[in-house]
Design a protein around this nucleic acid. Structure first.
Lengths: 198, 198
DNA sequence: AGTTTTATTCTGTCCGGTCAAATTTTTATT
DNA sequence: AATAAAAATTTGACCGGACAGAATAAAACT
């Protein structure tokens, strides 16, 4: 069935994610992916054009999952402050899985300069992130807060801080820092959004 | 002479920097480095233990240069606000060269999980960055400003925002955005540091 | 001449992608 | 339902090419 193909593809992508996390982007071979997925090498070529194609679809799948999860989180809340909290929480949720995700995402980021298709996927992801930020700021403005923040640049700065915090957290191999960065990230953003111009 | 050796090493490192920027970390071969440096492959083996050793020394050299340049910049200024401005300016100075630098630095960051020595170099770099942030916040406190910011977490957030902005700037291939990110990064940090707790 | 430095060649390893054969699944026929 | 035929999927051996590092040769310097 068509279903089988879809299942296999997912299986290969999940295997690739784990393989990259363990061995690093450039060290992963087709054989590694096949081993992690418990299939033979030929299966990968059967369902994907080539290795680059596997990576491309993995990046697409990952960034889409991150966005969907973050967007769903803010939609559950009704006011701007809660939405902001939910946004940061979503970015930092699930420490163990998240670490794998962002570790691999970072490897992709490094590849973006060498690969036009990766760049396009990432640009879409950025636009989605900024969209979330814009929605929150706009909601805040409609509530009479966040009055001194520009929507566009504000949404850029929000994502910059989230990414910067995630990066630092990723680089410091200490699980206790997870909530530290999550909470400080949130507090810092709120302070920035709430600023009263002097 | 010893001098000649030092010169050759620098030459190889500079070539490696350029090669990684053009071709990507994992694609760079010893032959590439030799070609960029206008020497033969043997030279590299003569001055470095192996390819990984070249990369290690390059990372060390790069992160040290970034720190030295940023630290020198804040020392030229006398008050906290000016220091902060100088810090951000230093991080964003020299768009073209900087792009190469940070592009390659990003590739190293992605490798950090696979390489203990890289991780150590980067940890040192982070500590240096946080040190700069701490100095600025402390100076501010001694001037009676930045009163509501903790020194440690504040220095973490400052670097997180700088890195996040640099990352976004790097990913968006538009030279006009350089001053946009530099200025917004600075404004956002100052807003955060100056916050009046309600 | 002897030593250091540079250039070239060699060698063993590994990898991505292919493909023909084997296996499994689906469809058609009786 | 049983069987046969066809289609889809899976396998792993294989090939050509690329690379790191070693070995060797040549040149430059002292």
């Amino acid at each position: 069935m068509n279903n089988r193909a879809e299942e296999r593809r997912k299986q290969v992508l999940r295997a690739t994610l784990q393989a990259i996390c363990d061995k690093g982007f450039s060290a992963v071979t087709l054989q590694d992916i096949a081993d992690y997925a418990d299939v033979s090498k030929g299966v990968i070529s059967y369902y994907f054009k080539n290795k680059e194609d596997v990576f491309y679809h993995l990046l697409e799948w990952m960034t889409d999952r991150i966005f969907q999860s973050e967007y769903a989180a803010i939609q559950k809340e009704s006011n701007a402050i809660d939405k902001m909290r939910a946004y940061v929480n979503a970015a930092f949720k699930n420490p163990e899985d998240n670490r794998i995700f962002y570790r691999v995402y970072l490897e992709f980021l490094a590849q973006v300069n060498q690969n036009e298709r990766f760049r396009e996927v990432n640009n879409t992801f950025y636009k989605n992130c900024w969209f979330i930020g814009s929605e929150i700021i706009q909601k805040g403005k409609s509530e009479g807060i966040f009055t001194n923040v520009e929507i566009e640049s504000g949404s850029h700065m929000i994502r910059a801080l989230i990414d910067g915090c995630l990066l630092q957290w990723l680089m410091r191999d200490d699980e206790t820092l997870h909530s530290y960065y999550r909470d400080n990230c949130y507090e810092t953003i709120i302070t920035y959004l709430n600023n009263k111009k002097s």
